[in-house]
Structure formats: C-alpha cells, structure tokens
Design a protein around this nucleic acid. Structure first.
Length: 201
DNA sequence: CACCCGATTATCT
DNA sequence: GATAATCGGGTGT
C-alpha cells in the first residue's frame, strides 16, 4: 500500500524510523525500479544546526516548511542529488528525511546501467548513488509522493531490525541520534567510520 | 582499513 | 567568496 499523507505528518524522527523497510518505487513508462529503504536520517527545524532549515526559510528550503509528503531535492558538492521527504504537520516545524541507502529490489539491470557499475552493493548504498541508480534528479523537486505516478513509497511488509546512530557527514548536531538503519543489512552505507561508533539499539 | 584529496556548482553571506 | 546531509580514486600501513 502506498504511504498516505498522514504517515508524513508526524515528528520527523518517527517518520524516518518508520520508513525503514518501506519500498521506494520509481516508474517511467513501463519501467520500474525499486528498492527497500534501509538507511535514513532526520533533519528538523530551528533546533537542529545540521538542518538546511535551521536558519529560517530560504528559496532552497521552503519546501521543508510546507505540506508533508513532498520530495525535497538538493544538489551537493557539485556532483550529487540527494532525495528527501518532507515531514511534520504543516505549520509546525520544518522537517525532512534524507534517504541514504536502498536494497535493490526491481530493475537491477537498469540501476547498473545508470550507475555504470555491475557491483550490486555499490548501486544504492549512499544518498548520491541511489538517486543516480533510480534516475532521480532536480526535476523531482516538489513532487508529491502521495499522488505522483513516477515516484512513491509502499509500506513495509515485514518488520525490520532497526539501529540508530548520530548522522553522517554533518559538522554540527552530533548529539542527536537521528540516523536510522536496518541492522546487519549489507546495503547500508559505510559512512564515516569515526561517526558510526556510537551505534546503539 | 585509515586517511587524503579533487571534482564541481547551487545557494547563502 | 565560502561552504556543503558525497563519491571515487589514490596512497600508505
């Protein structure tokens, strides 16, 4: 079942945690590429120095202040697109969940073509990699996951073992343990080893 | 495995 | 003008 609006209209870390095990589906014509979400991070509001919305509303982050369940894309380090889902009830705090890793399900051949590699593990084990594998770019900025024909999320079919840590790649906001991943899954990104130490259940 | 670095550009100060 | 929620390739241990 496709996730509906109410799923996203909650506390951002809860949305992030519950996205683990859900399936991200990318459709273009007859082609379907999909993967299970195995790693995410929450970014939230004026109390989170690592969030793009920390310093208030700007042209780039305005979507994080709007209706939940939309796609927030940003381009980083001159190379990569990162995929985020907006969260929180509208009018409350700005919030978004970064999708960091997928376990490939459908369209693996297509992913390999998009990524230019045949190494299955490295197809989708990072935020910049999975967008490339699924053919998701800046044109998806603002896409509504609740109604879109080309990008949406299906609810989890079976429970997953979750683990938590501080977030990867951020220079501030280490105290918050807002990275969630599926324990033991080989498609979880390696991240920065020094920042993955404080893993807890 | 640990560390280092260059690529490359939108966005904000 | 500086910075960045990354990646891949390199070197050295």
């Amino acid at each position: 079942m496709r996730l509906e609006r109410s799923f996203f209209e909650r506390h951002t870390p809860s949305v992030a945690r519950d996205l683990l095990g859900c399936t991200l589906v990318r459709k273009s014509g007859r082609r379907v590429i999909s993967g299970r979400i195995v790693e995410v991070e929450a970014y939230r509001g004026s109390d989170d120095p690592a969030s793009h919305s920390y310093r208030g509303k700007t042209a780039r982050n305005s979507l994080m202040f709007g209706e939940a369940g939309h796609v927030y894309m940003f381009f980083i380090y001159g190379n990569h697109w990162c995929l985020n889902f907006t969260a929180e009830p509208e009018g409350r705090k700005p919030g978004a969940v970064l999708v960091r890793a997928l376990e490939p399900v459908e369209g693996i051949g297509e992913m390999a073509k998009n990524r230019g590699t045949s190494d299955t593990v490295s197809l989708t084990n990072g935020p910049g990699k999975l967008t490339q594998a699924l053919g998701i770019d800046g044109s998806f900025y603002g896409e509504d996951l609740v109604t879109s024909e080309r990008l949406f999320v299906l609810s989890a079919e079976s429970p997953v073992r979750r683990a938590v840590s501080s977030r990867i790649g951020v220079s501030q906001g280490h105290e918050q343990k807002w990275r969630y991943f599926v324990k033991g899954n080989r498609f979880v990104s390696k991240g920065h080893p020094s920042r993955v130490k404080d893993v807890s259940e």
